[in-house]
Every structure is written in structure tokens, then in C-alpha cells.
Computed example of a mutant assay.
Amino acid sequence: MLSKPHDRLAARFEAKLDAVGALIRARMESRHAPRIPEVTAHLVGAGGKRLRPMLTLAAADICGYRGENDEKLAATVEFIHTATLLHDDVVDESSQRRGRATANLLWDNKSSILVGDYLFSRSFQLMVETGNLRVLDILANASATIAEGEVLQLTAARDLATSEEIYLQVVRGKTAALFSAATEVGGVIAGAPDDQTAALYDYGDALGIAFQIADDLLDFQGDTAATGKNIGDDFRERKLTLPIIKAVAQADATERAFWRRTIEKGDQQDGDLDHAIALMQSHGALDSARVDALSWAAKAGVALEILPDHPVRDILADLAGYVVSRIN
């Protein structure tokens, strides 16, 4: 028996996910620029759970949809996600994703940016093919919100004045916007009532926030083999994630000087990561962030209650719990 909720979703939607995969492969082809499928295939081939497209299929299924436009929307969501990953790795100067070398390292930054732009364009073509203007509005707004969140992060990531409120705004942009759009469009394409599509939006929003906070925590406490990331990557990249923000808020003058040197100025030395983790632990910042993640996961579960009684609804509720179980 499959115990992980995303595995249960994958099993339930196996046929549709195969169709989504075929659609992705077909639309990432290019007659004139063979580098496009090369770069895209490298990232797609790295695996990943296809969580966001599964959310679209699941939301549509709960709301009784029977058709193929959910597959186009699922592929759209995956294209947007893949495009943002390509761009993010350039912005973050990353060298590893999902345990493999990033596209910008194997090719170059120009290729990653331009292929990401190509995938964004493909995603809009797929949206239009559904013939649903509201779907187009939701996903276009999500794309703009994602870009806005990334730009906000550029200015906030290394500023010790960044508050939890600003952090939440960044997360709602860079992560939760696509989760909430993925679930909301599933309801919209199914013709669900407004209160149900609003509930699907709320679920995706809360799930995305819980997911990101959990990722922030895993950066300091996770298993490299499981996450594909090295412990402390966010610290080395000088990202003010939630645990650090919480620790900075309680820092004395000496501790604040440490954070200013390592995060704002980028002067990091041997032993600084261990000291940073010790500071977060001494102020209960890691535990506090874990409580926040659990709270958002609970909000995601509550949002589902208005939806029709459905086995997939139960899986989505389990998924919210699983997202944060990784940090227990």
C-alpha cells in the first residue's frame, strides 16, 4: 500500500500524468533551437514529484471534471514551475538542483534564461487552448506574482530589517502563488461554485507557505541525500529565511554583528554555519518556524472542508500533513 500522499495521487492520476508528460515533451520541442529540449529535458529528467500539476488534476477531479483541459492546465503549471527553476538557479548562482548539476552550470546563464522564457511562452499557449478566460487571468496573475516575489526577495534577502511579514509576502509570491493557482484553476475548469474555487485557492496558498517554511527548516536540519541540497545552502547564499529572521529579531548586539557580517556583508568563515544554527537553536527560532509550518498546514486542511466528500480530498488533507512531517 502506498503511504505517501503524493504517491497515492500519482497512482490515481497515472494515465492523466502520462498524458501531461507527453504534452510537456511535445511542447518543449523546437525545430530551430535544439538547445531548448536539451536544457528542458535535463531539468525534467532530474525527477521531481510533479506535485503542482497533480494538484490541478486533483482539484478538477474533486469538483467532478471529466475532460482533457485539466491535462493542459497541469502541463501549463509544470512549464511555469520549470521556467522559474531555470531562472532561480541563475539568480541564486546555484550549481545543484535535485542532486544534479544545474542547467546554468552545464550550459550557461543565457541558455537558462532564454529557455525559461520559451517555457513561459509555451505555458501561455496552453492556457489559451482551454478557451477559459478566467483560467488565463488566474495563471497570468500568478506568473506576475511569482516574478514580483522574486524581485522582492532580491531586496529583502540580505537586509536584516526584513520582517516576518515581508518574508510571508515573498513566499506568497515565489512559492504559494503557483500552488494556489494550480488548485484554483482545477476548480474553475470543472465549473465549480465560487466558494469551492475560493477554498481550493486557500488550500494551495496555505500548502505553499507550509511547504516553503519546511524547506527553510530542512536547509538547516535536512538530509542531503533526501533533499538534494547541502545543509546550509541558504546560509551560504545569504538568504534571510524564516529561522534566521526569527533569530535576528531576538539577537543581542554581538549576535547582530555576526548576522550582519555573514548575511549582509557576506564575510563567512569556517564554523559560521554551526554558530548560526546554534544561535537559531538558542532562541528557539527553528522550533518557532516549525510551529508556523504546522499552523499553515492545519489551515490548508480546514480549507478543504467545504469541498465535496471525495477520496482525493482526503489525500490532499494528508498531503498538507506530509509536507510538514518532513521536519518533525
Rank of each mutant, 00 (worst) to 15 (best):
T224R: 12
A226R: 15
G228C: 12
G228V: 11
G228N: 11
K229M: 10
N230V: 09
N230C: 02
D234H: 08
R236S: 08
R236K: 13
R236W: 09
L240Y: 01
T241C: 08
L242W: 00
I244H: 00
I244Q: 02
A247I: 04
A249Y: 09
A249W: 09
Q250E: 15
Q250W: 05
D252W: 10
D252L: 10
A253E: 15
T254M: 10
T254W: 03
R256D: 03
A257S: 14
W259P: 04
R260I: 02
R261Q: 13
I263E: 00
I263A: 01
E264L: 04
G266S: 09
G266F: 02
G266P: 09
D270N: 12
D270F: 07
D272L: 11
H275Y: 13
A276L: 05
A276G: 10
A278M: 09
A278Y: 06
A278N: 04
A278W: 06
A278C: 05
A278D: 07
L279P: 08
S282V: 06
G284Q: 11
L286A: 05
L286V: 15
S288K: 11
A289D: 01
A289G: 00
A289F: 00
R290A: 14
V291E: 15
V291K: 14
D292T: 11
A293P: 12
S295W: 03
S295V: 06
S295Y: 05
W296S: 04
A297F: 01
A297Y: 00
A298Y: 08
A298H: 12
K299E: 14
A300L: 06
A300P: 08
A300C: 08
A300S: 14
V302P: 02
V302H: 13
A303T: 07
L304C: 10
L304R: 03
E305S: 12
I306H: 06
I306S: 15
I306Q: 06
L307W: 09
L307S: 03
D309V: 14
P311W: 11
V312Y: 06
R313Y: 04
D314C: 02
L316S: 02
A317W: 09
N328A: 13
